[in-house]
Design a protein around this nucleic acid. Structure first.
Length: 110
DNA sequence: ATCTTGACCTAAT
DNA sequence: CATTAGGCCAAGA
């Protein structure tokens, strides 16, 4: 098992993101113990999109902005997936983001 | 091997 | 409230 890899940890958490929910890089980074490694989280996603099924579309930045939409092949692929889950998106930003926000620590706590 | 860029966040001024 | 600086780890040139 390569769970010791930072990427693997990010992927593991990303897969734990429930349906119709979204989270931000910082939250994941914190869950991994590296609150300041939020950048790595995004980079991990970049490597994750080529790996197993990782709901990277459920991961957005602190402002709920679909910053990584450009890496979904099409700049509307990410937004499209979010809307497919019932998540409304406007101006490439998740609506009610704070409401749909999901903290990975919540899972680790249980 | 070195420098720069990268799906970012937090703290300080 | 807006701007500036620091941090983290990895990949590309």
């Amino acid at each position: 098992m390569k769970d010791e890899n930072f990427f693997e940890q990010v992927r593991a958490v990303a897969r734990q993101i429930p349906y119709g929910r979204v989270t931000n890089y910082g939250a994941i980074a914190r869950a991994l113990g590296s609150a300041q490694s939020s950048r790595m989280v995004g980079w991990a996603m970049h490597a994750a999109h080529v790996g197993p099924d990782v709901p990277a579309h459920r991961v957005v930045n602190r402002q709920g902005l679909l910053t990584g939409k450009i890496h979904f092949g099409s700049p509307h692929e990410m937004q499209r997936r979010l809307e497919a889950e019932g998540i409304k998106v406007k101006n490439d930003k998740v609506i009610h983001f704070k409401e749909l926000f999901w903290d990975p620590q919540t899972l680790a706590a249980g």
